[in-house]
Design a protein around this nucleic acid. Structure first.
Length: 571
RNA sequence: UGGGGCGUAGCCAAGUGGUAAGGCAGCGGAUUUUGAUUCCGCCAUUCGGAGGUUCGAAUCCUCCCGCCCCAGCCA
């Protein structure tokens, strides 16, 4: 596949256009991008957009994408996150090859460049307190005031900076600042901090340093060291670009990268703020970074979302500069699309209702053929056991059904998928009036699901043989938040109390009990499910990745809102 | 009366002076042993608004309106 073909498949966007133009003009021969996570949390679906963009561009243009950890703040970063991030990028389907880097690899060079700026009179050590600095920074509309330490001599600055490095001062005592313009309309240019004193152990450099470069002082130079040609980041860094360029212009860097910004992903009913995600985990709102309700790659993976679905979703939402909120339905569509094609079908009953086939011989068992995938004959068939006692879904029976209810009700005939037509003859209730079982009859002539007399039936329902069924725990997930646009300032108020429903006695086809059973799999008529790591021998646990499209449920819901009748009938 | 961005359908998003792609959602209909899938059809006389330039404007110019980001020794 040529680069041009690859792009037409991926779609165009303004960044790919710029890169294509840079190649066409001869400005670059080899494209180098980078994905630069800070290891202070887990990757989420928003990062997936960035990963697909950066690694995707490298693939399409025959270039290279580096994985570079932006580890300049040891007070927030941990090895656990570094490991998880690498695993997640690989799982998503991308590989950085030999190009694994850390900003901390460049600490010595960055330090040398800081001294270079000092020598050129472009940086100074500031003794002001944090409060003083803030007070002198000015406001959005008023210029700042120069620090009283701004005009120290080169010698004094050098001496102080070296002593900062040597550990002579406590954390926060002094900073190194660029000497730019305290009156700039762009606050990032008002003498930004280059180095701060942090007596903290770093996951990689340990105690080697007690001063650490700021993001601004590290990022562009790291790009330059690695020969990154296109440094792609999100919109909020747009007004850092003049500073990014300033460092590259004033330092003897080995290459001249350029920064481009795109709009980060926002998803309805979802929060992608790292701060909030961290609080969800630490506050116990979810069971961990890989809780299937989390939008983290680890959570999505555990939920059963295939990486192809993430990539397809990202491809479809495009890349632009307008802030936007993508409907989570678009993500679910991508998941269903991939899973519909890939997942084998099995039968499982979530809320079992016992059915006794009165005219089926006691003790008789037979095996019926069921296809594994309706659109893929190569997926083959399997045998499912049928007996006198079965489980069907409680939702597939209604004693007083509304019009257009195609499932089972007293006196009505339906097809048991791959098996027989059955007719409901009697409803068995307990003392409380609860339906506890159904007595039905079957038509032996309809074996396999077709009536020789051409008789039609309106509905087909799934079932599991009671004698063979395996009991399982099934976890049904709903949106973590109740509102399309949760309040990140008070996220707890918008958390969905019903984001997790646990079904403890689902009945599965026996093959689903095996440790190596299919996953993800479609439970027919219900949705796509993935085996969870909490599964124990003989006690499988499944997560619902996403339900099937449910037009009947939608019609029902709408009708119920419109006109809930006394007897439950819906006109 | 600061600086930087962005405004095309309910939601994403193409379009770069020649007469509004595509996807999601929605709505009809066909097929169906998953009310799934698949398939067909419908869904912006109009591009935040108003002027202007032009034979012709979502695209160029002017003014206005709206939304987002920035005052961490976070990234």
């Amino acid at each position: 596949m040529t680069a041009a073909e690859a792009i037409s498949e991926t779609g165009r966007d303004f960044i790919r256009d710029i890169i294509a133009a840079d190649i066409a003009s001869g400005r670059h021969r080899k494209i180098i991008t980078r994905f630069p996570p800070e290891p202070n949390g887990y990757l989420h679906i928003g990062h997936a957009k960035s990963i697909c963009l950066n690694f995707g561009i490298a693939q399409e243009f025959g270039g290279q994408c580096n994985l570079r950890f932006d580890d300049t703040n040891p007070t927030k970063e941990e090895q656990e996150y570094i490991d998880a991030i690498m695993a997640d990028v690989h799982w998503l389907g991308f590989d950085w090859g030999e190009h694994l880097y850390y900003a901390s690899d460049y600490f010595e060079q960055l330090y040398a460049w800081a001294e270079h700026l000092i020598r050129d009179g472009l940086a100074y050590v500031d003794d002001q307190s944090q409060d003083e600095m803030r007070a002198n920074r000015g406001t959005l509309t008023a210029p700042g005031r120069n620090s009283p330490f701004r005009d120290r001599s080169v010698e004094e600055n050098l001496d102080l900076f070296r002593r900062m490095r040597a550990g002579e001062f406590p954390s926060g005592a002094r900073v190194l600042r660029a000497r730019i313009d305290m009156a700039s309309g762009n606050i990032n240019m008002r003498d930004p901090v280059l180095y701060r004193i942090l007596h903290a152990s770093h996951p990689r450099t340990g105690a080697a340093w007690c001063i650490y470069p700021s993001y601004d002082f590290a990022h562009g130079q790291s790009d330059a060291i690695e020969g990154v040609t296109h440094s792609i980041c999100t919109l909020e860094f747009e007004d850092h670009r003049p500073l990014y360029d300033w460092f590259l212009e004033h330092l003897p860097v080995p290459s001249r990268p350029h920064q481009y910004e795109f709009a980060r992903l926002n998803l309805s009913y979802t929060v992608l703020s790292k701060r909030v995600l961290t609080e969800l985990v630490r506050g116990g709102y979810v069971k961990g970074w890989d809780d299937p309700r989390m939008p983290t790659l680890a959570g999505l993976r555990r939920r059963g979302v295939p990486p192809e679905a993430l990539r397809e979703f990202v491809r479809r939402i495009g890349v632009a500069k307008a802030n936007s909120v993508v409907d989570v339905a678009m993500f679910e569509h991508a998941i269903r699309e991939v899973l519909n094609a890939a997942a084998m079908r099995r039968m499982a009953v979530l809320r079992p209702l016992r059915v006794v086939i009165e005219n089926y011989p006691e003790g008789q068992i037979e095996e019926l053929e069921a296809v594994n995938h309706p659109d893929d004959p190569d997926a083959g068939t399997r045998r499912v056991r049928f007996g006198r006692e079965l489980y069907i879904e409680r939702d597939d029976f209604m004693e007083n059904p509304p019009k257009k209810f195609f499932r089972l009700s007293p006196g009505k005939e339906v097809r048991l998928r791959y098996a027989y037509f059955i007719t409901c003859r009697e409803v068995v209730k307990d003392a409380a009036g609860e339906v506890v079982a159904l007595r039905c009859t079957y038509d032996p002539a309809t074996r396999g699901g077709n009536a020789p007399d051409g008789r039609k039936v309106q509905g087909t329902i799934h079932w599991v043989s009671a004698a063979d069924a395996v009991t399982a725990e099934v976890r049904l997930y709903n949106q973590l938040f109740t509102k399309p646009d949760p309040d990140v300032g008070n996220f707890a108020a918008d958390i969905n109390p019903n984001s997790l429903e646990v079904v403890i006695d689902a009945k599965l086809e026996p093959a689903l009990a095996a440790d190596n059973s299919l996953s993800p799999v479609q439970f027919e008529r219900l949705g796509y499910f993935a085996r969870d790591k909490d599964s124990a021998p003989g006690r499988p646990v499944f997560n619902r990745t996403v339900g099937l499209r449910d037009t009947w449920g939608k019609v029902q819901g709408a009708a119920a809102v419109r006109k809930p009748d006394e007897d439950g009938d819906i006109k």
